[in-house]
Design a protein around this nucleic acid. Structure first.
Lengths: 231, 231
DNA sequence: TAGATTGTTAATCGATTAACAATC
DNA sequence: TAGATTGTTAATCGATTAACAATC
C-alpha cells in the first residue's frame, strides 16, 4: 500500500510515442557521459541545450519515464538513468540472434554499447562453411539451418538481419520458421512477414539522403545570400 | 525552348519533405530489384503493396521526383529509377571522408551500395599508427591530422564519424578545421558545431528501442486476447 | 467507352511548440 | 519570499489519409 501509491504518470513502453521513444536512448547516452563527469543533478533545460532539443520536448519525454523531477533542482542523475535503463530494457526482448556474419554483422556484434540499451546478441548464424564453427567477436557462429531449433529452444524472439540483399527473404523465412517475432532488417530488401511479426528497416542510404539534402539546402541558402549581396 | 517547357511539378531536394526523402532510397532499392526481374512498367499501387505503404503516399512521393507517371499504365521503370538516382545524387555532395577505421568504419567502407545513392567515400582517417598508411577495404588510411589540408585541397564537404564516443568532439573539431560542412555522426556523442554545419545523428540504439517497443506491444496485445478468451 | 491509375485538394491525425499553472 | 524549474493544457505545425477530378 505505501508503495503502490507512488505510480502516477509514468507510461509503459507500448503507450509511448514513436518520436519520444527514439530520443530516449540519446538521453541515456548523454546522461551517462555527464555521470562520469561527476554531475549528480540535471535539468531538462541543460539537457535540451546540449542535445539541441527544446526544453519542453525534453521535459515531456522524461515525464513519461521518470517522476523524480523536482522544480528548481531538476532530476537526480542516478534515478533518471536508472528509470531510462529499466524502461528501455523492459519487454524482456533482450536476447537476439544475428544472421549474416559479414562486415556489418561483425560491426554490430562488436558494438558493446547495445548491452546498455537492452540488447544482447547471443550468437551469429551464417551459411559460409568458413565461418561456421568459428567465434566472431566472441560470439559463436552456427549454420543457418540450425536457427529454427535453437531459437525455439532458447526462446529467442529477435533476429538481426545482415545478409546480402538477395539472401534476405530466404533468411527471413528461416527466422519465421524459428518463431522469431521481431526482425531488425539491415538489408534493402522489403521483407514479407505475417502481420504478427514486427520488422524495423534500418536504412543507412535513407539517412544519408537526408544529410545530403540538408547540406544542399545550406549551400542553396548561401547562394541566395551571396547573390543578394553581390549582384 | 522545346526542352524547357517540360518542367512542371518536380521539386528540388531542398524543398522535399523529410518523410518523403527518407522513403526515396527505399523505392530506388526496390525498383532496382524489380528491374533485374525484367519488369518494365510499375504502378504506385504495386510498389505500395510490396513496401507496405499506402498507394497515395507512394504516388505523392514519386510525383515530387518523376513526372513520367501515366494513368492506367503507371511508371516506366527505367525513367523512374533514373529520376530517383539523379535526385538522390544531386547536390554534388558525393565525396566524403570517413574518420575512424574501426569495425563500424570498415563495414561502411565496404558497403558498396552507397555508391548508388550518391555517396563516395574517398579515404579513411585514423590516429592508430597500425592503420595509417595501410589500405582498408580498398581505401587509403591517412593520419587524422592531415584531414584539414586534404579536405580543403580536394573540396570534400562531408565527414562520416565512426570514432569511439570519447574521441568524437576532438575528431569533429578537426573536421570543422578542414571546412567540412556535413557530418554523419555514428557516435552517441552530441556534437558541438556552428549553425552552418549539418549534423545527422545515426542512432542504432534508438532504432532498436523502437523495434523492442513494437514487439512488446504485440506481446501485450496477445496477452489481452488470450486473457479475454481463457479467463 | 469503361476502368484503372495518376495527381490534387480537403480533412484528419500526431507531434511539436507556446502559454501557463504548480511547486520546491 | 522570489525565482527557477517541472508538468500540463491549448494552439500550431507538418505529414498522412480520404475524397475526387483528370487522363490514358
Amino acid at each position: 500500500m505505501p508503495q503502490s501509491e507512488v505510480s502516477p504518470a509514468v507510461q509503459t513502453i507500448a503507450q509511448i510515442s514513436h518520436a519520444t521513444l527514439e530520443r530516449l536512448p540519446r538521453y541515456l547516452a548523454y546522461l551517462k557521459i555527464r555521470q562520469k563527469q561527476g554531475v549528480q543533478q540535471i535539468s531538462a533545460t541543460i539537457i535540451a541545450e546540449d542535445l539541441r532539443l527544446t526544453p519542453v520536448s525534453v521535459r515531456k519525454d522524461l515525464a513519461a519515464v521518470c517522476q523524480a523531477g523536482r522544480p528548481k533542482v531538476g532530476f537526480p542523475l542516478d534515478i533518471l538513468i536508472d528509470d531510462l535503463e529499466r524502461f528501455l530494457g523492459c519487454g524482456n526482448v533482450r536476447d537476439a540472434f544475428l544472421i549474416g556474419a559479414g562486415k556489418l554483422g561483425r560491426a554490430l556484434l562488436a558494438h558493446r554499447q547495445f548491452g546498455e540499451y537492452g540488447l544482447d546478441i547471443l550468437a551469429a548464424f551464417d551459411v559460409s562453411p568458413r565461418l561456421v564453427g568459428q567465434e566472431v567477436e566472441g560470439k559463436p557462429v552456427f549454420p543457418l539451418r540450425k536457427l529454427p531449433n535453437l531459437a525455439q529452444r532458447m526462446g529467442v524472439h529477435v533476429g538481426i538481419l545482415t545478409v546480402p540483399a538477395e539472401a534476405a527473404q530466404t533468411a527471413c523465412d528461416i527466422l519465421l520458421e524459428g518463431g522469431i517475432r521481431a526482425i531488425w532488417n539491415f538489408t534493402p530488401t522489403p521483407l514479407d512477414v505475417p502481420a504478427t511479426v514486427v520488422v524495423r528497416n534500418e536504412n543507412l542510404a535513407a539517412s544519408f539522403a537526408v544529410l545530403s539534402r540538408d547540406l544542399a539546402a545550406v549551400f542553396a541558402q548561401e547562394q541566395v545570400e551571396v547573390g543578394g549581396t553581390t549582384l
